[in-house]
Design a protein around this nucleic acid. Structure first.
Lengths: 334, 334
DNA sequence: CTGAAAGCGCTAACAT
DNA sequence: ATGTTAGCGCTTTCAG
């Protein structure tokens, strides 16, 4: 454990060359069992801990993966990170994390800071990035994994699900349940392709239904924002029957506002969300939403990275982890 | 941006020595304005990006901070990380993150893996660790910051709040509001000193009230667990008047169960939680709980680290960020 | 199968 | 103020 012990000390102690110690450390086959034992012994006696910084420089490989998500203190994105660390840790790799704050500029800054540390690969949230980000990432020469959405033109590899399709399916579910006057509530913020695609999915799904009466409004992505949206819907005189929220946070906020105002959900107003936060299944009534296994998405992203780094490059450039429309009570017509 | 450009290339281009380039890179004062300009020019022309791995080895300082939290996909702990990355990024440092999964063993493994990467400092969640962890951390020779709780015997430095005192204050609030038959709901899990201290705080606060009728039960730390606790309380024939949950997750689960069963909160049953999840302020009725600014806690932890690393060692070894008892409707006697 | 030697790209004395 | 040089601790040829 004493960090002043170097590889050369181990070599001396075991009476072998430094190359040999390095070989046993890296599991090279070309070491006799006897020598290996001697070295292992010396390592244990000295409490030697390899200096991974020196290894990184010499081997031109750090074992560090960089990941960028919009905000860290946010379950949806942190769950992906949890999944990534799970598999990376199992492979002796570690994760550096950074937040873009939903900003183009910050994203670029964070990426540049990361690249200076020579990560072996990088994960970025989303599939639409500024040109600067795209080219920086491309020129980096390391595997790039984009996540949490899908695109047919990834920078390198993408692992996610189609926010567009999910939104289409969710909207169609409501239409099939008989709802005709539907409001869609999206977020007052740019630079988030998941949110954008969800809105486009809604628009696409309702574009053919001539008998539909729909509208799109924007609110803050918070419980309060969702409550505000419900207030707006109730204040309007168009007789809104259903509201689809771009996020569960807003949907739950809307649902709670309905509780407060005695609006029966779904009898008077149906509500659907997106993300399947844990609360979605527990709230009253339980919330219809889109579910994605985000921890698994993170695991898959890390597995792709590990495979690429080990030279197993047979994996697809586009990995669809799928989604699930979870119908619950908030949209079940009485 | 081309990572094949080295510092020596810049030196050649600017017609100066490598030492000089290193000096302007590290902001040394001993460089004339003219030379600095020449170097800056060459850097821009070549698109040079310093190799921080090489710097780390040569300077014996990585600019990497390691942080370990129980689970990453969990707002309470991720918010701390968000705060840390905010200030670290502003200082050109980056964060490696790992999860202990509430396991002694895993915590030690992750710490050892991190130390091999020679971080400049390390943050660990909680203040009670195995002897192996304590001694490993102590021998590491780098600043160690423990967080999210308080202790008078930190490994090195601790920044947090007293879970014990918060629990005492919360319990006393209920007693002052006239509640006498109080159940405390804790978590079925070991190795979490925050949860342990909250329980002890409750015990301490009720130990003197002879007229009190209290009990402690254990449930899973989930919405369902909280609901289960409410069911148990209702099924008992001791006339529980108030329930204090060790976490907001359980408290919210309990509250939702009350909604379902038509149990009036707080008239029939008062409910209090811990953590001030965002939902606590929005749920019906709003939830009395303990609030801590966790993002700020993370910022403070990072500031302590940055200061220590810059040699400003005047900061205290024990930093109390405080907590706030937030009384809301769920405990306000009608 | 093993040892010796040459770097990896940078920083930090040490000269000048 | 600036150039030169010796490492930082490891991996990886290259011989043998």
């Amino acid at each position: 454990m004493d960090s002043t012990v170097r590889l050369s000390d181990v070599a001396k102690r075991a009476a072998v060359g430094v190359g040999t110690v390095s070989r046993v450390l890296n599991g090279s086959a070309n070491v006799s069992a006897a020598t290996r034992q001697k070295v292992l012994h010396a390592i244990a006696e000295l409490g030697y801990v390899p200096n991974l910084v020196a290894r990184s420089l010499a081997a031109n490989r750090t074992g560090l993966i960089a990941a960028i998500i919009p905000v860290i203190g946010n379950t949806q994105h942190s769950e992906v990170i949890q999944g990534m660390t799970d598999v990376l840790h199992a492979h002796g790799m570690n994760l550096m994390i950074g937040a873009s704050g939903y900003s183009d500029q910050v994203e670029l800054q964070v990426i540049e800071a990361f690249l200076a540390r020579r990560p072996d690969a990088i994960y970025v949230t989303g599939v639409r990035h500024s040109e600067a980000v795209r080219s920086t990432l491309q020129r980096s020469g390391i595997p790039v994994v984009e996540g949490s959405n899908l695109t047919d033109r990834p920078i390198d590899t993408v692992v996610g699900y189609s926010n567009f399709n999910a939104s289409v399916d969710l909207t169609r579910l409501l239409i099939n349940r008989g709802y005709r006057r539907i409001w869609y509530v999206t977020v007052t913020r740019d630079f988030d392709d998941r949110i954008d695609d969800r809105l486009e999915g809604f628009r696409s799904a309702v574009s053919t239904g001539l008998e539909l009466k729909t509208d799109v409004i924007r609110c803050e992505n918070s419980f309060d924002g969702g409550a505000e949206a419900v207030r707006l819907a109730m204040a309007s005189n168009v007789g809104v029957e259903a509201m689809i929220f771009a996020t569960d946070v807003m949907a739950v906020g809307g649902l709670l506002e309905c509780q407060r105002r005695g609006i029966n959900v779904p009898a008077r107003l149906a509500i659907a969300g997106f993300d399947d936060l844990t609360i979605a299944a527990s709230i009253n009534p339980s919330l219809t939403t889109i579910k994605v296994d985000r921890v698994d998405l993170g695991r898959k992203a890390a597995e792709i990275i590990v495979n690429r780094l080990q030279g197993n490059d047979h994996s697809s450039r586009i990995v669809d982890v799928g989604f699930q429309v979870v119908e619950r009570d908030s949209t079940r017509r009485p």
